[in-house]
Simulated scan of single mutants.
Amino acid sequence: MGETTSSVTRWAPWRVAPASGFEVDDPTGRGSVGVVQINERQFVVLNTFRYSDEVVENDLLTKLVRGGMEEPEARAAIDKARTFVPREDNPTDLASVPRFMRWFEDSYGRHSLAALIHDELITDTVNSGALGSDTLSDRFFREMMRTSGVPWLKRWIMWSAVALRTRWVAGGYRRWSIVLWLLLSVVGIAATVGSAGALLFDRPWPVSSPGWSFVVALLMIFVAAPLWGRQWAASLIAAVGALWLVPAAAVTSLAWVVYRVLEWTARTVGLR
């Protein structure tokens, strides 16, 4: 791919994951990425950095050309997509991990630079990022996490989360397909947990036998997958992950609500 260096640029491997493919413009040569906190939730990144991995870039090139881009245009798009240039108007909250999911993954880690690039590729207007495809940008995010050493299941769950957002923001039938998938997921999770509990504790089950209900609930995961279109694999990961992520997130959310109530009580009685 084309170079974006200048005479004063000094690229160094990202010190957090030197073999990740990420290179940082760091005059010290240490590969450090500096950030400045500008308010309670947002930061400004100080360094330019880029992602370089020939296999991943060639995969992107192939998909863009198949999608109708001329090769020079596709190479320019990839060069722009893989490079993060700090600006005053692009503050970040790092990875946008909901508070109730921070037990699973922090907003920073080996995925940090991949998340920053992904945020630049996903704009308020559908498919208007450098790659011209939010779906492809999501895939790029997953591949950057892979080479950065994010474990398989974790990166696929994080990919399924951004893929869910992509289909929702696209609107139209894609949004309605997600609504239907969510409804089926609620039924499936309830049936899976309930029938599994009935099997384990030898309790009565109101619909057929708990064994058959358990099998049917698991099959619903595959039946509902096409509702995600080309990102059907994200549907499978999301469905399997939801079986244990949703209950844990619900407990975490309840604990957060209790904490907020206690803080409100403390303020009400004048405690500082």
Rank of each mutant, 00 (worst) to 15 (best):
A255M: 07
F141N: 06
V186N: 03
T83C: 01
F141C: 04
V36R: 14
T5D: 15
M69A: 11
W256D: 14
F100P: 14
Y108D: 03
W152T: 15
A255I: 06
Q37G: 14
G29H: 06
R139M: 00
T62M: 06
A170I: 04
A196H: 01
E23P: 01
V215W: 10
Y259D: 12
R50F: 01
V251H: 11
R142T: 12
R50D: 04
A225R: 14
G29C: 01
N39R: 02
V162W: 08
R41V: 11
S20C: 10
E40K: 10
A191S: 13
A115N: 00
R272W: 01
V36I: 13
G211A: 10
G270Y: 13
S32G: 12
T28M: 00
R155K: 13
D202T: 09
W244F: 13
R102G: 00
E23I: 07
S112H: 03
T9H: 08
W156H: 15
R50Y: 03
S185I: 01
P72L: 03
K154P: 00
L60R: 12
W11T: 07
W152D: 15
P72Q: 08
S160Y: 12
E54I: 07
I78T: 11
L254R: 09
D59W: 11
A249L: 08
V150M: 03
L46G: 09
V193M: 01
A233H: 14
V55F: 03
V257P: 00
R260S: 10
G229M: 00
V207I: 15
R174D: 13
A81E: 05
I221H: 14
R267T: 11
A248K: 09
W152N: 13
Y259H: 13
L164F: 14
S128Q: 14
G109Q: 01
A238D: 07
M158S: 04
L46K: 12
A77E: 10
V85C: 00
I38W: 07
A255F: 06
S20L: 00
F22A: 06
A77L: 08
Y51R: 05
N58K: 04
R155I: 06
I122T: 15
A81M: 04
V8L: 02
W14F: 06
D79A: 15
L184K: 02
Q37H: 11
L116K: 06
W156I: 06
F49S: 08
N39T: 02
D25N: 08
W232S: 14
S177Y: 00
V193G: 02
V240A: 14
L199I: 13
E54L: 05
L236R: 05
E57H: 15
L64G: 09
L153D: 03
M1L: 07
R99A: 08
T125R: 11
S235R: 08
V162E: 05
E105N: 04
E71T: 13
Q37D: 08
V186F: 08
L131I: 03
V216D: 05
V223R: 03
K80P: 02
A190V: 08
R139S: 04
L236C: 13
G129P: 10
G197D: 01
R99K: 09
R175Q: 15
V44M: 11
V261W: 12
R165W: 13
G211K: 06
